[in-house]
Write a protein that binds this DNA or RNA. Sequence first.
DNA 1: TGTACATCAGTGAACGCGCGTTCACTGATGTAC
DNA 2: TGTACATCAGTGAACGCGCGTTCACTGATGTAC
Lengths: 222, 222
Amino acid sequence: MTSTPAASPHRPGRRRNPRGQGERLREEIVEAAATLVVASGDARELTLRRIAKEVGIATTSVYLHFPDIDHLKVAIVERGYAVMDAARETSAEGILDPVARLLARCRAYCRFAVEHPGYYRLMYGHELPAGLAFNADQSPGRRALGSLADSIQQCQQAGLTDHVQDPMATATLAWATLHGLASLRIDRPNFPWPPLEEMTDAAVSKIVGLGAGGPSAPSQMI
Amino acid sequence: MTSTPAASPHRPGRRRNPRGQGERLREEIVEAAATLVVASGDARELTLRRIAKEVGIATTSVYLHFPDIDHLKVAIVERGYAVMDAARETSAEGILDPVARLLARCRAYCRFAVEHPGYYRLMYGHELPAGLAFNADQSPGRRALGSLADSIQQCQQAGLTDHVQDPMATATLAWATLHGLASLRIDRPNFPWPPLEEMTDAAVSKIVGLGAGGPSAPSQMI
DNA sequence: TGTACATCAGTGAACGCGCGTTCACTGATGTAC
DNA sequence: TGTACATCAGTGAACGCGCGTTCACTGATGTAC
């Protein structure tokens, strides 16, 4: 019966950061937490103990960098927005037609949600206490909405939409719509959904009014 | 220091049901649980202990009627669907125009969600374990979707839509859209949302194609 | 060159809490004889 | 009419668990003198 310390909190691999590099641990913690949330798809699985175990540190070491677990979750949300923003931008790279760009970005939004439900739920659900959720004008979510509005406006200015309405209002409606497609698909996986991209294209086309026969205007896919 | 049994589990008011009426407690439990979930707006507040306290019984008495807490949650979800179905039907009462009926029902759906976020999250979120969530063809949610499809088809048959597409596919898209409007509003209450009914009407009009100038066809509200 | 001391990056035991669930029990009420 | 017994509607103590958080501590490393 020699030890076998199953509850040992630190992985053998890890060694402490060199002097002056203590901040590195913060990144390791966020990274590990993100790994957990992506792997499980469920932000409720995020506990201090599991995160610490994933990093290979004592549970209490998290408090060296975060005042409590909710602030750690905020850091994960920030990372989630960074990943999603990058995915959206990548998807639009090299596409010049405004309609095709808009649709590519919207598809990327939905794809991110479906492929990273843990991130997505943490970003847009009610996991975080209201005071910590991003609400300010300069929050990452608000910036994403602004760029959606820009993308819509470009379609309008190119004469590729049926009608011209306030881009911000249309973007808000489109955002809420995409959120519905994505989150319902995540939460009701057994429903016989049509392909995600078809639904996304159909919804955005109708909401934005992409009927003016641009080169990439989708017809009736749904 | 005479007692003051603050932890006494049963309210003084309650007396046991008469012989043969034991099933009544089941209703009392569901009722109390629904009260809790409506009051808090958050299904995570639902615990055996709080429910039992609300009813005025011992925690363990819940097990007389439910094998575990998840089955109790299913009963709450059933009640939620009943409340929502009734609200939708009531909202359409006396309205003959198919478009107006459709919009009234869709508004009622969103209103239910916003007014009962606890119910709504339990019904459409991922609170319930996947095996217990309603997925079958005959689930209450599936029936609601069918009636939405009917309502859309009536608009199409009356020639009140721009185009005619498969009613079930259109209903699926509309449902997901409404879910987005409602759930995002619930979960991001600080966002500067336009009025709910305006967004609902605008979204449904565009998704279903209500542009054929029926008597109640909404114009550009957003 | 040697040593005392401050700083830094963590550790580990322990806390109280609320949770779902188990199990043996209670006490009132109806029924068979 | 009386009584033993079965049934019914619950009760209450206790369980182990994982949680977030607190607090005093450790041990390596750099630095001042």
